[in-house]
């Protein structure tokens, strides 16, 4: 599904040049659950942003579902992203002004689903996440675990092929954290490819394969399954 070759990304300020990704190579097969680990500043988040088409590489190749997309335009990336990728963030990133229901509905609006379809899909995913009773609440009225469940619901409502999770349990206690990991595992079992950045060895164990990064490069792979 994802094939990255010699991908480079450099951040420049007036005085400093920081190499975030240094000719990195990475393959993710369809249906895989991959965890990316590494110390702060090793380039995990940059990699995630490029995988999520939020950022573009300076050089190298990025093939997504067989298509070279390294030099896609902004609008092409938007198209690809909204149909294929769901995001789960450490700090949930729900929109405070929208209710649980409306937050989950948002991706469907952008992909142009009809209102009746949206209602069906949102209800379905909220029921699956046991959030129906909370659908009219605003994010700040929910616990951290509940908020992350909403975020996961929002990430999967469009049935994306790929979910990118950036430290999804980072702001949660262990009980809520486990619940979220369970949820991701279930999604993976149902066929969704998952790439997750984490600092937690515990969480990483839910994955099939752990990629360890340092200084913008992959240094090691542990295959768990």
């Amino acid at each position: 599904m994802i094939q990255i070759k010699q991908l480079k990304k450099v951040y420049r300020t007036d005085e400093v040049e920081t190499v975030a990704l240094n000719a990195i190579n990475l393959m993710v097969e369809k249906g895989e659950f991959v965890a990316i680990m590494g110390p702060s500043g090793c380039g995990k988040t940059t990699l995630m942003n490029i995988l999520g088409l939020l950022d573009e590489p300076d050089s190298g190749s990025f093939i997504f579902n067989g298509i070279e997309i390294a030099h896609f335009s902004e609008s092409q990336r938007v198209q690809l992203r909204k149909q294929n990728i769901g995001f789960v963030f450490q700090n949930f990133n729900l929109i405070d002004e929208l209710t649980v229901y409306e937050n989950v509905e948002l991706p469907l609006i952008y992909t142009g689903h009809k209102s009746s379809e949206r209602k069906k899909m949102v209800t379905e995913v909220l029921e699956r996440m046991q959030l129906m009773h909370r659908r009219s609440h605003y994010p700040q009225q929910l616990s951290g675990g509940q908020q992350q469940r909403v975020a996961v619901a929002r990430a999967v409502v469009n049935k994306p092929a790929l979910i990118l999770a950036d430290e999804p349990t980072g702001n949660l206690d262990s009980k809520n954290g486990n619940e979220v990991m369970q949820l991701l595992t279930e999604l993976n079992e149902q066929g969704t490819t998952i790439v997750m950045v984490t600092h937690s060895e515990h969480d990483a164990k839910y994955s099939h394969r752990i990629i360890r990064m340092l200084d913008g490069q992959t240094i090691m792979e542990n295959i768990l399954v």
């Binding site: 999520g52 939020l54 902004e74 609008s75 938007v78 992203r81 909204k82 149909q83 995001f87 990133n93 729900l94 929109i95 405070d96 002004e97 948002l106 991706p107 952008y110 992909t111 929002r154």
Partner: peptide, 16 residues
């Protein structure tokens, strides 16, 4: 800003 970021990741383009 956060709202803008979230909307963009969810597939909103600049124009919308």
């Amino acid at each position: 800003a956060k709202e803008v970021g979230v909307r963009k990741t969810l597939g909103s383009d600049r124009a919308s």
